[in-house]
Design a protein around this nucleic acid. Structure first.
Lengths: 205, 205
DNA sequence: TAGATTGTTAATCGATTAACAATC
DNA sequence: TAGATTGTTAATCGATTAACAATC
């Protein structure tokens, strides 16, 4: 079963909503109800949920909400956490080191890296900051698969090259720079400028 | 001329690349060259650039790089800055208050808001933090159009309601919660869980 | 001139929406 | 039973890619 990226993006949104509904005491939920709450179409919700659900829904009642939550979490791999590091301990890097939400989606931050001697050796939120020269060692030792890239733009590609040499598998790139990587490396971008372009465009009409 | 959201997301990516090429001394650039650098298809690049360009490209040479930069910046509204505020001065809120990159894309952060008396009245990066009770006043006084929402999840909707009452026009939502808003309010989400779902999915196959 | 790149029009591809019989 | 919701199959919609004549 193949899923599109748009579709993948929707599952965490379903999940958040379903958890809040469960916490407010709901036991079952229907696609039209979810669709209405999240302003998706009900056909889309039904299709999306079919893809991840082990059991069928029941006509007239919908789906068991706990089962659905479990199925989505499993599908998204939340029960199989990935170790990650923060690369670049500036304002945003520090904020991400302190962010509590990552473990909710199976992302386990184990340390940070920086090139600045003033931060190397420090602990932030209990996580040690290592020198960029220790990348290869620590990635292997701590079984780090993903680097969360939050360096200044001008060094992003150079650091990316180091990460590739150090054996990283994926890069979650918060830097507004297009990274060139080997084609066995997975890159996913958080691009604030792109997101804001949509907001701004909608505002101006 | 209508543009899709996917397309809008690409323009800031073009822009970053074009500026770096200009800074390295290039005067003109062709669609195939851009396509190759950013791993887009050349047809797509050509179509995208046609939409925003005032002048046509020249067969065999391509487009004037400065003109192209100007056209994209104008199309994205970067020459018509929008005032915004940070709502919620936690780790991420502080990082965004300190972030230098916003003004590059026409976003002018003018202040922050929080409910915690320990931060109200402080200045971060020269920007004053006001009480959430001053929302309506300050939004009018400082001509704030956009709120950058970085509160805890559990108060996001409640704060959103306050923002709507205070006359906000757009919300850039960094909180992983689906916001219910009046349909004259523009919402754009930065959803880290959604982005990570894509990364994780690609990693696991 | 030859050839790379352009702009435009047509074809393909993929995702969303609609339709509808099945069923709890 | 009646009716809401399901799963599935077909239709539509929109975006990307391909084709190709025009041109610097």
């Amino acid at each position: 079963m193949k899923v599109s990226e748009r579709q993948l993006e929707r599952y965490p949104i379903y999940l958040k909503y379903l958890i809040s509904m469960r916490d407010s005491g709901l036991a079952t939920i229907s696609s039209p109800m979810i669709a209405n709450a999240l302003t998706f179409s009900e056909e889309q919700v039904r299709k999306d949920l079919q893809v991840v659900s082990i059991n069928n829904g029941k006509p007239k009642t919908g789906r068991d909400i706990n089962e659905l939550i479990r199925d989505i979490q499993h599908f998204l791999g939340y029960d199989n956490a990935i170790n990650a590091c923060i690369v670049g301990v500036g304002h945003l890097g520090k904020a991400l080191l302190n962010y509590k939400g990552f473990k909710d989606f199976g992302l386990n931050i184990v340390c940070g890296f920086d090139s600045d001697n003033n931060v190397i050796g420090q602990k932030i939120n209990g996580l040690e900051i290592f020198s960029i020269y220790q990348l290869a060692n620590k990635i292997e030792e701590l079984k780090i698969e993903v680097a969360i890239l939050v360096t200044p733009s001008n060094v992003a590609q150079e650091v990316t090259n180091k990460l590739m040499n150090a054996g990283i598998k994926g890069i979650w790139n918060f830097v507004p720079t297009h990274l060139k990587v080997n084609n066995d490396i997975v890159v996913e971008n958080i691009n604030m400028a792109s997101s804001f372009a949509i907001l701004n465009h909608k505002l101006k009409k």
